[in-house]
Design a protein around this nucleic acid. Structure first.
Lengths: 337, 337
DNA sequence: ATCAGCTTTTAGAGCGCTCTAAAATACTCG
DNA sequence: CGAGTATTTTAGAGCGCTCTAAAAGCTGAT
């Protein structure tokens, strides 16, 4: 194992000072075209790669953005992938800080901060708002996916409420009247989605029926059992795709046809939504949009000098696939008023 | 935004030198019990957190292990989560280097190397063997999941061949005779799994039938169409769970009962396997086992001075769920010889 | 007291880079 | 040709930490 090539080695190779090579390597203005060419050639020849730790230390900038995510979630993973490319475009690198059952959000944030990330993106954070506000005083924070009621924080999120409302209207349009909503545990997002459901039901003069649920496939399975044991609704909306997939699976095991007997809707448009035998009707989260806005917000804070906080709300889009259809019971012809 | 607390600030607070504080912070022997206590208290009071970049630079050790993974894969994500905890236990931190369609493995590796990772874990690498051997000369490399024929490399993998063999025997035991295998693109793993299939079929005196396939759900869908358009086998084994899930979905859409008319087997035991209406019979990859061995290998190289290369092969385990059953056509009673 | 043999603390020289201020060089024009 | 200006290059002082070698404090035995 040979010693690493340093700036100094490149400098010696081309017969210039370390300073000149440094400028060339980071594209700083100054060096002449000829110098740039020679240095780049030499660096390439020697296989030189700058030491990030040293660079970060000297420049007091890490050019890294930390992203806290639940690495198990395909939706989070998708966002992270997209952000990776987007960050690259504005000259930053991403550092992933996975949140797991054995490593809570605070740990993840701490680790990213220890690595001197210049900004933090929190995907689907579960931390209390005041903690986030405090964190934002240390380093620019953008929270993705969750509304932050009344907090001075940068937020990029989907309009969850409208998404569910639109989904309810889609079902009503198909002729459904008995539509059940199965909520998630999460305080804020779950509340927003439920509110969207209640609003749309109220607007249509229908009776809302909300069940407790969760965000995992197992929760969906349990919800299915609960629904089957009572009076069947003709359509069920679930907090997210995971839950919806579990729900549908349990329904099918019980011999219930989807969407023939019960229509089912999800939320997120995760890859899961497309994989089952009945493709899930769901609400798409606009991943490229979320990503772009998130990195724009960071760019503005880091390099643009913005000091106020902003909230970007992205319109949702219902994606109709095969898990929803007209209800089994024929719809009464609506009497002309 | 206030200046960060440095080692020096803590030193000033307790009236000691930077050196002493440094030793206390990294648990080096030397400082007296009293000193340790006072320093820790002061560090805590001031909210001091060591700067990793500076520490890495000075000590020439980053204490970081880079992990290259496909962040979209739930299996990779699961492994990464597990490794996070395991790395923590041996005093290292993990740096994730996601491989995406827009960011190939070489890029990911380069980025991890720029961050001065001391070792690299490559999950499901697709890089050519000689490239890996070259990389291993720079930094200890452990490849996870793929056999490296004839290469001097640390490898931790499942015995893919036996896994598929066992699965085939499971199907034969159920009475299946016409069993099709749908292979993946990947050169090595696909070859191993296919070999396992062929071996088991040959041992049972059955005619092998192999189809080209792939590793994604879409590939599974295409395979299903291909299988349905020919003479139906009574059982189909697919390269992995993703493909198997797509395969089953397409079968169900075509009104084919699983496992009533066709039994289906997967590989990996990804969370996906449990989510569908028919839970997938699959081959489990022992994630804690893979993780433990991977980090053991790294530990031995980094802190134990091992210089030879090792291969750890983990025995697979067939997990029988509901996607496999006895074939529809009654089995002919096997004539006593 | 003095000294050997501990334990505990510290000075100070880096680690590989960045960046400012100043030096060196090149160019323009009267 | 030399002053003046614009362009390139460089010296050198850090960034916040680590780590070695040496200094300083302690013991207890002489």
């Amino acid at each position: 194992m040979t010693r690493r090539i340093r700036l100094e080695d490149v400098a010696a190779e081309v017969g210039l000072s370390r300073a000149s090579v440094s400028m060339v390597m980071r594209g700083a203005p100054g060096p002449s075209a000829d110098t740039v060419e020679r240095v780049l050639a030499a660096a390439d020849r020697l296989g030189y790669r700058p030491d990030r730790a040293a660079s970060a230390l000297a420049s007091r900038r890490s050019r890294m953005i930390g992203v806290v995510l639940e690495v198990r979630s395909t939706f989070h993973a998708e966002l992270a992938e997209e952000m990776l490319a987007a960050a690259d475009r504005i000259g930053y690198d991403l550092l992933l800080g996975p949140r797991t059952p054995h490593r809570d959000e605070a740990r993840a944030v701490e680790s990213l901060l220890d690595s001197r990330c210049e900004a933090l993106v929190l995907i689907g954070t579960e931390a209390p708002v005041d903690r986030l506000v405090a964190l934002d005083r240390q380093v620019p924070v953008v929270t993705v996916g969750r509304r932050m009621p009344g907090a001075e924080l940068d937020v990029v999120r989907l309009d969850d409420e409208s998404g569910v409302s639109e989904m309810v209207r889609h079902l009503i349009g198909l002729g459904h009247r008995r539509i059940t909503y199965v909520r998630g545990h999460d305080v804020v997002i779950a509340a927003d989605r439920e509110a969207g459901y209640r609003r749309a039901m109220a607007e249509a003069g229908l009776e809302p029926l909300v069940l407790a649920g969760g965000k995992d496939a197992d929760d969906g399975v349990r919800s299915a059992r609960a629904v089957l044991s009572g009076t069947w609704p003709t359509a069920v909306l679930l907090f997210n795709d995971q839950a919806a997939v579990g729900f549908i699976a349990e329904l099918q095991r019980a011999g219930v046809d989807v969407p023939g007997q019960v229509s089912v809707g999800g939320f997120d448009d995760s890859p899961l939504a497309r994989m089952g035998a009945v493709a899930l009707t769901t609400v798409r989260q606009d991943v490229p949009g979320l990503t772009r806005h998130t990195l724009d917000l960071i760019g503005e804070r880091l390099d643009g000098g913005r000091s106020t906080r902003r909230e970007v709300v992205i319109p949702p889009e219902v994606v109709v696939r095969s898990s929803t259809g007209a209800p089994a019971a024929p719809r009464e012809p609506s009497p002309g008023r």
